[in-house]
Amino acid sequence: MTALLTVSGLSKRFRGLKAVSNVSFEVPEGRILALIGPNGAGKTTTFNLIAGVFPPDEGTVTLKGVRLTGLKPNRVCAAGIGRTFQIVKPFGELTVEENVVVGALARERSVAVARSQARAVLERLELLDQAARPARSLTLPDRKRLEVARALATRPTLLLLDEVLAGLRPTEVDRMVEVLRELNRREGMTILMIEHVMRAVMALSDQVVVLDHGEKIAEGTPAEVVADPRVVESYLGAEEG
């Protein structure tokens, strides 16, 4: 199985505090990998290092063998990584459709073509009926879906999802899980997701990487990971999934 994304020896310190320490893992093409761990474990920092928000102190990130380390976020996007934000960042004054058009324009020069692509993505995420509304007027679940839609519109080969299920009601979680599963199964989209909702992690992911205090403490299938005593102690036991 070929690795789409390879993270190796990634480290990042903030004012001496080790946020991420020598983390390595691979995301195989066409798979869903979940990054879990307690708050402050370094999950979002790892995401930001992959997405180019800041450069790592040590380590490398490669996508299909192409080195991304040190690239700015817009270049990382161009290389094929689409991301969502844990705290959603819609373009508030723009309409839902315009939000997604901006995403589509990452790979498309014509606004008209980008618009039709955006509408196709909105339809898939069941947001088409909201297309003309200002993004700021959406409910939280819809904003989360808009985050996914905007990232998808950039036509990524790897999708980074930062807690897109947090704050959703169980029925909404199920809907989103269904959308993500479809994306993965039908289009072979590779997904790296940070997630706290263990039910979704168990249902969706092929593989799980567990972080604690910035270090990788376990890796394996969802079943293996939940049975790991270190994981139970540091994460699952301490916090109700």
Binding site: A51, C77, K89, E93, V102, G103, L105, V111, A151
Partner: peptide
């Protein structure tokens, strides 16, 4: 295209950068 990118930068620079601007 440029206009859409301007508006995105105005609204949320970080998110604009993440979608390739």
């Amino acid at each position: 295209r440029l206009g859409y990118q301007w508006l995105a930068v105005r609204e949320e620079p970080e998110a604009a950068e993440a979608v390739g601007v």
